[in-house]
Nucleic acid binder design. Structure first.
Lengths: 200, 200
DNA sequence: TATAATTAACCAAACGGTTAGACTAAATAG
DNA sequence: CTATTTAGTCTAACCGTTTGGTTAATTATA
C-alpha cells in the first residue's frame, strides 16, 4: 500500500487556512483538526502545540514564496525584467496561497510580536532579495537611485493588499474592482512603479 | 467641576491600543479595563460588549484619518500637491495613531470578516477619496491615466506597512532602516509614486 | 432617599493541552 | 503456522485555565 494514511501536508494545509483566516489568536486548534479530518490529539502527536504548528506553517509558506521568487528572477537579465518577474511571481504566489501575505500583514500590524525568530529572518530574506534587485538596477543604470527599503514596502505592501482584497473588491464593486488576477495586479503595479503617475 | 471622572475617550484609547497590538481575537477585555484603569464591569456599563468596543474604536479611528485627509487636501490646488498632502497626512496619522492602519491590515488579512459594516463603508470612503484625487489629476492633465484602485492600494499599502514597521526596521537594521518619520515616509513614497523608478 | 456610578465576586462556555486506552500491522517466539 | 509481543497510529473523554460577560451589592451624588 502506497498511500500514507495521514500526511503532514494535510495538517499544515488545514492549519495554514485557519491561521490565514483568523490569525494566531483567532485560530482554533479544534478547528484545524476538524479541517484536517483528524482528532485534535493527532495534531499534538504529529506536529506539536499551536505555536509549533504556526511556526511550521510560516516557514513553509515563506520558503515557498522565496524559492519561487529566486527561480523567477534567475531567468531574467535586466533589472526592469527582474522587477516584472518578481511582481508576477509574488502576485501569483500571494493569490493562490493567501497564508504568507496574510501572516505578514498581521505580523506587521502587531509589530512582529507573535512572529517566531525564524519567521522574522524569512521576512528579512524576502526583503533582502528585493533590495538587492534594486541595487542591481541602480548599478546597471536602468533605475534611478531610489531607496531600496521604500521600494520593498511599496512592492510587498501593494501586492499583498491587492492580492488579499481581490475577492473583496470584486464583491464590493463588480463594475470597477481594479486588478484582480495575479497578472493584472503585477502589470498594473509594474507600470506605476516603473513609470510613476506624473505625465511628462 | 469640569473634569468628568471617567471619560469615554480614556476607555476607547485603551481599547484602541489593545486592539492595535493584538487584533480583535487577541485583545483581552480584562486588559482593556486594566489599561483604562477601571473595573471590567465598567466597560459594559459605559460602552457595551467587546464587539461594540471594537466598532466604536474603528469608527473613531477611520473618521479621524478621513477628516485629517480631507482637511489637508482642501488646501491644495494641483493634483500632485494633493498627492503630497495626502501622503503626508496619512503617514502622520498612521504613525501617531497605529490603530487604523493596524486594523485595516488585519481586516485585509482576514478578508474583512470581523469588520462591522460601518467599518467597511469607512474603508471605502477612504479609498474613494484617494480615487477621486486620481481622477482629478487625470482630468487636469498632470497625471497619466492610471488605474485609481491600483494607486489606492499602492498608497495605503505602502504607507501603512512603512509606518507600522518603522520601529521594527529601526531596531533590526539601525544603519539603513529606510524612511522612519512620517515626513520621510511621505517624501520617499511621493517621489517613487510620482516619478517611477526607471531612469529616463 | 432615589439615582447614578462603581466594583468584587462569580459563572458558563470555550480553549489549549493531556491521558489512558483502542486498534492495527508488523515483528518475534514457540 | 499460530500465538504473542512490540511499536506505531489514532481517538474519546477529560482537565485546568482563561475568557467574555453578568450580578448583586456597595459607594457616591443630587
Amino acid at each position: 500500500m502506497s498511500t500514507k494514511k495521514l500526511d503532514e501536508k494535510t495538517i499544515l494545509d488545514a492549519a495554514a487556512e485557519e491561521f490565514a483566516e483568523k490569525g494566531f489568536s483567532g485560530a482554533r486548534v479544534d478547528e484545524i483538526a476538524r479541517r484536517a479530518g483528524i482528532n485534535k490529539a493527532m495534531l499534538y502527536y504529529r506536529i506539536g502545540d499551536k505555536e509549533e504548528l504556526y511556526r511550521r506553517v510560516i516557514l513553509r509558506g515563506q520558503k515557498g514564496m522565496h524559492d519561487a521568487m529566486l527561480k523567477a528572477i534567475e531567468a531574467t537579465h535586466t533589472a526592469p525584467e527582474t522587477v516584472a518577474a518578481m511582481l508576477a511571481v509574488v502576485a501569483e504566489n500571494a493569490t493562490e496561497n493567501r497564508l504568507t501575505p496574510s501572516i505578514m500583514l498581521r505580523e506587521i500590524a502587531g509589530n512582529g510580536k507573535t512572529l517566531p525568530d525564524e519567521g522574522l529572518q524569512g521576512m528579512r530574506k524576502l526583503m533582502d532579495t528585493i533590495s538587492s534587485m534594486v541595487t542591481m538596477g541602480v548599478e546597471e543604470g536602468s533605475f534611478r537611485s531610489v531607496d531600496p527599503v521604500t521600494l520593498q514596502f511599496l512592492v510587498t505592501g501593494a501586492v499583498f493588499t491587492l492580492s488579499l482584497t481581490a475577492e473583496m473588491r470584486r464583491r464590493l464593486s463588480p463594475e470597477k474592482p481594479g486588478p484582480v488576477t495575479p497578472s493584472e495586479i503585477a502589470e498594473a503595479l509594474g507600470d506605476i512603479i516603473c513609470n510613476g503617475i506624473v505625465r511628462r
